[in-house]
Design a binder for these strands. Structure first.
Lengths: 243, 243
DNA sequence: ATCGTTTTTTCCGTAGTACGGAACTTTGGG
DNA sequence: CCCAAAGTTCCGTACTACGGAAAAAACGAT
């Protein structure tokens, strides 16, 4: 469905450009013909998802706010209190992610009070094999699904600690299932250690994580943190089950 | 551009349905053929703007969160502090709206601390002739534009105080231009009084308003409130000019 | 387990929508 | 005032999207 995809491509491009761009800038970034873009933006402006400024440049429109809010409420709203408790107990950034196709997507986060902290963009898609939340999500999937999924994505190296061996990853997943949590040792971002646990329940795979610099999240801290993250996962699962 | 419009129609329908619905429910609500909807949702799921739950039902997807956040940041982020000050000074709900086509759209709000308070949905479109922000927006437009716009929309009565006479509305606009603010006397919602002022500047029409029940917002309060709302409009305009 | 019903998904020929090159208009800068 | 760049409109072609119909899958009842 081409035109739908292109319409959203424009919105994303606009978001990447900082929320404002002219038609020709959009044409250059997307590689689409100006006439095509014009037709798309005209429709989007008419619907209120885009706004045309007096300068004839375009901005994301007000109706996106409503959709985004509804979507966020759906995921984040009920999750942030739990994440906030985690941050209070641990002092590091807490995230909630869900499985979306072959990737993990962050849908809620509460940042750490430290000035040096993790910053994960809400809505960001990350691979499963090299992130805490990703590996936690994998522990919730049947082996057959894991195999199929990894077959599609492969295990590209992101840092030099990224697990690129399918056998090693499978062992990691098995360990995660056993302990109830997984650890990411800078596999996506050097120097960042992350503890993640699945959010159990009948609602589609989700996972919660806490991440911070390896300097603060040391071996001693890990022992204290892990049970708290697992407990948070259970709490989130329980909340979801009620809804 | 049909398919784009239909795609967004599905997203909105889903939002209306509380964020979750099955395919057949969407078919019934939108009146579209199941095959058509299936094709649309398949595309949207593939793009990440929709998520399919294990129950095969659909939910708003995580990527909408990012778009919505970016859009909200664009409007609301810089505005909420000012609106918050207004609420602190006045104790009633404060809103920011922009002109979008022939309607006003609320893009930011800070609710009043009272339990009985205005509730305006972010992203909601309202007519210009019967709302505080709408009339404030009209005061910023050249007479020719006002005429053209009112010619398109007409002046439908929403409550029994709605101004339906073009001459009376024009006088109201003239008065607003003179005083720097307008008053909405339950013209959109019975029992609600609202004070609104334009946000001046070269960024496209915008307006700020404060609204509450007529019981609290009485004549005496009006005298105190009006200058504050006008000042807030100026502050917002100044912030926008810097960006 | 077996069968009927409802919901979801796939198929496919047709209709019409979207495409994009090119021409035209408007805007902003010199 | 003129020129260059950006934005908008036009229009014939091609392909995309449409939706009825049939198949498949899930659900529930017996």
């Amino acid at each position: 469905m081409q035109s739908l995809a292109r319409g959203f491509e424009l919105l994303e491009t606009l978001a990447d450009a900082g929320g404002e761009a002219g038609l020709s800038e959009l044409a250059e970034r997307t590689g689409l013909a100006p006439a095509t873009i014009h037709r798309l933006v005209r429709t989007l402006v008419g619907l209120g998802y885009l706004r045309q400024l007096p300068s004839r440049r375009y901005t994301l429109g007000p109706r996106l706010v409503r959709l985004g809010d509804t979507a966020e409420r759906l995921f984040g709203r009920w999750a942030t209190p739990v994440l906030g408790d985690l941050v209070g107990e641990i002092g590091e950034t807490a995230n909630l992610a869900v499985l979306d196709g072959d990737h993990a997507v962050y849908v809620a986060q509460v940042p750490s009070p430290h000035s040096v902290r993790m910053f994960t963009e809400i809505g960001r898609r990350v691979p499963l094999h090299c992130t805490g939340v990703g590996k936690a999500l994998l522990t919730t999937l049947p082996d057959a699904d894991v195999t199929a999924l990894l077959g599609r994505t492969g295990l590209p190296a992101v840092t030099d600690t990224t697990i690129t061996d399918p056998v090693a990853l499978r062992a990691e997943i098995a360990l995660g299932r056993e302990r109830g949590y997984v650890i990411d040792e800078g596999e996506q971002e050097p120097g960042v250690r992350c503890v993640a646990a699945p959010v159990p329940g009948p609602h589609g795979p989700a996972a919660v994580s806490v991440s911070g610099p390896q300097g603060r999240v040391d071996e001693a801290a890990l022992a204290r943190i892990a049970p708290l993250v697992v407990a948070a996962g259970l709490r989130l699962g329980a909340i979801l089950a009620d809804t």
